[in-house]
Amino acid sequence: MEYIKEIDNVKKAVDILENCSEFTALIPEVRSNIVMAVKGADTVEQVVGIPGRITIVNGRPKSVMEPDFMSSSHMARLVISIMEHDPTIRSALNMKYDLKILEICKKLGLKISSYNRENEPEDVKEIEGSTIPWGVETAIDKIGTIPDIIYHLGAWGKEPMICLVGPNAVEVAEMAVCIAKLYDKLENIMGEPSTQEIELTDKCHDVIFSSCRGLWKAYKSDVTCIFCAIAEGNPHIEEKVLYNDKINMVLMNIFPYSRGHLEVVPVKHYTDINEIGSEEIKKLFCLVQRTISLVKEVIKPDGINIGLNLGKS
């Protein structure tokens, strides 16, 4: 069969979702669908999805039918719209709207954007199927890049929704499982105390691809030192500061090599590591230790790479 790779990829993605009981809590009222377009697709007929969507059976996610083409016009239009900006982003999955899910995505370093369906222009409303392409364009324009997460708060007769996008269905499903497991733990923490042993989240953080990484070359800044600008609170510099004790900072990399990519940076500008005194370097590496503990607690990786970036190159 032509395009067997895309169908097979969606099948594997469905298996991943069906084997994650925690994903049940992320399925919206209209049910979920995961789609993947063929390379170079420009019509919804070239997008694989699940006929009947992914529903809930006996408390677990369950695909109604086998993957096939022309199975989800909504999600297909979303993917086609994104591919007009980046043809490598060929897959998407819809989940229920919950602010806690967005907070988890933010902490995972995913780029998030949204659109308001109430602001949809009248000329767009008049054309069948134009809402989602308009929403995608609005979400991209809002942050100046392709988001990993696009959400809206619904409208009359329309359920609020979160959509996760990525290069292929398997990778999107793996990230969805990661989000679902973290969401489940968050719900347990906020609910009644549990005496049960916490289940290990095996393979829920295996996704290491970062779709925004390749955009760093287009990032323009006229500041002499990006870290000094962040330390000084320059409002024109995008940043994600997790910690700042006025001596050292912990930052999330705006263009991460992988999920959980953090940077520990001195607030004072140094051009050589040998300029740092013994007490200062002790504080710096004590903060590195604390940062490693944070990554281990949240991401639970099999290993951690620690490196020093010295010099302009």
Rank of each mutant, 00 (worst) to 15 (best):
G59C: 11
G59W: 10
K62H: 13
K62A: 15
K62I: 07
S63A: 15
S63W: 07
S63D: 08
V64P: 04
V64A: 08
M65W: 07
M65I: 04
M65Y: 12
M65R: 11
M65G: 00
P67W: 13
D68H: 08
D68T: 12
F69T: 14
M70I: 15
M70D: 14
M70N: 15
S71D: 05
S71I: 09
S71K: 05
S71M: 10
S72P: 09
S73E: 03
S73L: 04
S73H: 00
H74F: 06
M75N: 03
M75L: 15
A76G: 15
A76D: 06
R77W: 03
R77A: 01
R77V: 03
L78N: 01
L78Y: 03
L78K: 01
V79N: 01
V79S: 02
I80Y: 05
I80F: 06
S81I: 11
S81N: 10
S81L: 10
S81F: 09
I82V: 15
I82M: 06
I82K: 02
I82E: 04
M83T: 11
E84Q: 14
E84H: 13
H85C: 10
H85G: 04
D86F: 03
D86H: 01
D86P: 01
D86V: 05
D86T: 04
D86K: 03
P87D: 15
P87R: 12
P87V: 12
T88L: 09
I89S: 08
I89R: 05
R90C: 12
R90H: 08
S91L: 07
S91D: 05
A92D: 03
A92R: 03
A92Y: 05
A92N: 02
L93V: 06
L93Q: 00
L93S: 00
N94S: 05
M95L: 14
K96M: 12
K96C: 14
Y97V: 08
Y97H: 12
Y97P: 04
D98G: 02
D98H: 07
D98E: 11
D98R: 02
D98C: 05
L99M: 13
L99A: 15
K100A: 12
K100E: 15
L102T: 13
L102K: 12
E103W: 02
E103A: 13
I104F: 07
C105R: 04
C105M: 09
K106L: 04
K106C: 02
L108R: 13
L108P: 07
L108A: 05
L108Q: 07
G109T: 09
G109R: 08
G109A: 11
G109I: 08
G109F: 08
L110E: 08
K111S: 10
K111Q: 07
K111N: 09
I112H: 02
I112W: 03
S113I: 02
S113F: 01
S113L: 01
Y115A: 02
Y115L: 00
Y115M: 00
Y115K: 00
Y115S: 02
N116L: 00
N116G: 00
R117G: 00
R117V: 01
E118W: 03
E120H: 00
E120D: 00
P121H: 10
E122D: 06
E122I: 10
E122Y: 01
E122N: 01
V124C: 12
V124G: 11
K125S: 11
K125D: 06
K125C: 05
